[in-house]
Amino acid sequence: MSAAPATAPRAMGSGAKIIRYCGVVKRYGTFQALNGVDLDVHAGEVVCLIGPSGSGKSTLLRCTNGLETIDGGDIEFEGATLPRDERPLRAMRRRMGMVFQSFELFPHLTALQNVAEGPRTVLRADSTEANRRASAMLAKVGLSDKAPSYPAALSGGQQQRVAIARALAMEPDVMLFDEPTSALDPETIGEVLSVMKALADEGMTMVVVTHEMTFARRVGDWVAVFDAGRIVEQGPPAQIFDAPTTERTRDFLSHLGWAG
């Protein structure tokens, strides 16, 4: 089985390549999680990774900021190969925001403290500056009034918006979303997706692992379909959702009940 080539021209071709995945391989023991993944992410683009569970989408995202190390191939971020050493890797992580499926807010800190933690500890901002930045980010996700609340007092959707604010407070060049709405009640999914949409409209570069096909269709600039550790098809959403070129993509979408 060979990876299907991208068949449609890139709509956002003008943006510089901010992330390049070249033949990325990742193994867990004998399990081949990623089996030669090639993908480019251009500045200002929203790239959505879709596909069945266990197909490698989240693994690729976790390799992007070095939470997982790759066993083959290469990942470039802003023109440089992702470093292996702790110190340069940390410097690179500061420029990539990450949002997790299970939020991973720090439960012992208030919403404001959660968002201020990165600027304070990593960027060594003084507390006035860190809090100012945190307040601005909470306002951006519409949660200024929740600044003094602890995560346990917030709904899932609110927690995820705080988590987005926490990542944004580092002023990243790219945002990585790992199934940001999969752990949410249906009624709070919308508020998180609209924050993400607003972010995309501002021109933020985003890589989004998602099962929200409507989001991928409407907000995505480029969609990559994963199966068994490979990208089986990639292209603009119109191609993927309306005229998929591979049987595997059609299968996956029909299983989800996607009607086009």
Binding site: R94, M98, G118, V122
Partner: peptide, 13 residues
Amino acid sequence: GQVEAAMALGMSR
């Protein structure tokens, strides 16, 4: 996940 969230912000171990 808590450590990963901290490291994703750029914190050291």
